[in-house]
């Protein structure tokens, strides 16, 4: 369990929260990506904790291949911020931690599609990753709309996953070499 009270102070200001909520609720694609979300000190602490997690190799050939772990995050500030932006009740979340390396992916497959809509919360802790290496979390409605989230360390993405909106993890190619792309996902 990680105790967080270390959001970047800018995200605690009413004016900022109002802007983020407006952007999230009223954009064509209901999503916001917030950079430098945590304080630098806390972000460093979070990365340290994640690096000490035990990851398990998780492969379902027709759906995904990556390393997976989990982490509970308890933060009144984070919960209040997300509640305000999404207008949903948010309690402490248990995040799935995904670690992608070369040859890893997640495909859209009928058998494994998320059935229920929700709001995805993605904390990205990938600091040195080139988009050319793939591995982007990408949302699509299956009718041509594609919304890739560019990797950015210490960012928080909030995405309303409506019916027929699904996500996949783009294949990570050989230019990634030994590097890893790590992010945390939870759904509210």
């Amino acid at each position: 369990m990680v105790k967080i009270d270390e959001l970047n102070p800018i995200y605690l200001k009413d004016e900022t929260k109002q802007k983020v909520r407006k952007s999230f609720l009223h954009s064509d694609f209901p999503a916001v990506m917030l950079n430098e979300f945590f304080s630098k000190e806390f972000y460093a602490e979070l990365k340290k904790k994640i690096s000490s997690l035990n990851f398990k190799r998780d492969t379902i050939v027709l759906h995904h291949s990556y390393d997976r772990s989990s982490m509970a995050i308890s933060s009144a500030e984070l919960n209040m911020f997300l509640s305000f932006v999404t207008k949903k009740k948010v309690e402490d979340m248990n995040f799935t931690v995904i670690r992608l390396g070369w040859k890893d992916y997640q495909i859209l497959h009928d058998r494994y599609l998320e059935k229920n809509p929700g709001v995805d919360i993605i904390l990205d802790i990938t600091d040195a990753w080139d988009n050319e290496w793939g591995g982007m979390v990408t949302y699509t409605d299956g009718r041509g709309m594609v919304y890739p989230l560019a990797p950015a360390g210490n960012s928080l993405a909030i995405i309303e996953r409506k019916k027929n909106l699904h996500k996949y993890f783009q294949y990570a190619n050989h230019y990634a070499e030994e590097k890893k792309r790590v992010f945390l996902i939870a759904t509210i």
Partner: peptide, 8 residues
Amino acid sequence: DTDYLLPH
């Protein structure tokens, strides 16, 4: 270079 077709 980097093109692929995943399992299906």
